[in-house]
Amino acid sequence: MSSAKVAKPGKPGGENLVFQRGGFTVRKFWCAFFVFWPIVAIIYSLISSLVPSLGWWFPGPSVTELGQRIDNLFYLILYIVTAVFIGTQIAMGYVLWRASHSKDERAWFSHGSHSLEVIWSVVPSVILLFLALYQMDVWALFRVQAYFPKEARDAPIAEVTARQFEWRIRYPAPGKKLQLKPQPDDLYDVNDLHAPINRAVMIQLRSEDVQHSFFLPHLRVKQDAIPGQIIPIWFKAEKQGIFELTCAELCGWGHYKMRAQLTAEREVEFEAYLKKLQADQNYDGHATPSAVAKKDE
């Protein structure tokens, strides 16, 4: 039929027919089409990973060791997925290319092949099982309180309460431990969490109203805050600086307003910050804080 020249692969129900009847040009076009895009994707990934200055690749290294390990897990999965991707694309390209060269060759009807079913069930299961076992220690370190570093577990530095639409922070007074219930000498701040560097610190995360998510992208920390629960999170910043702290759970119309910051600073600076907070909180209008809240009990 002469009409077969103007093949319309999009025509419903007609694909197979049209493909079979289509000339070699059409077949080669589809072969080239499905090979072209994976090649573009691979070239793009290669350029962006080899030339990081372009800023196309993932964000820079984490400022915590645990974040680095999480990144490593991510990259491991990325490598596996890349290998699978390249392998399947090559296989598909080969099939298309071969079919575009021979009109008479028939496809192998593989449906019901027992050995093939076994192969594609067992191979991914092994990969998934490997990943599940391989990530266990990182997961435990990240999420299971019993595996947190002891120094963090023993002395949480602050309680962070998310609410629409801000982060309210409560520190224990210098030299004291954070208690579950607010204490008279607790120190308060909002939207600016301070933490010492090179020390594992723990935060108690709460929510006052709806679900929020405590997200420190540079530290690879993300944890939902759930009303009624106190959720411990820990991190050990290894770099000084001001890092973004945002809400990563759409929590209402003012979600975008929940942009706070983590100030990671040296131990002395952190202590000075708490002292300053204490002085400000006890400010009575006179230069010397004469009546620093003294508990008489």
């Binding site: 009575d284 209008g285 006179h286 004469s290 009546a291 003294k294 008489d296």
Partner: peptide, 12 residues
């Protein structure tokens, strides 16, 4: 408003 006297010590 500035208090004319410093805070009275917070005692029982």
């Amino acid at each position: 408003i500035m208090p004319p006297v410093p805070r009275v010590p917070d005692t029982t």
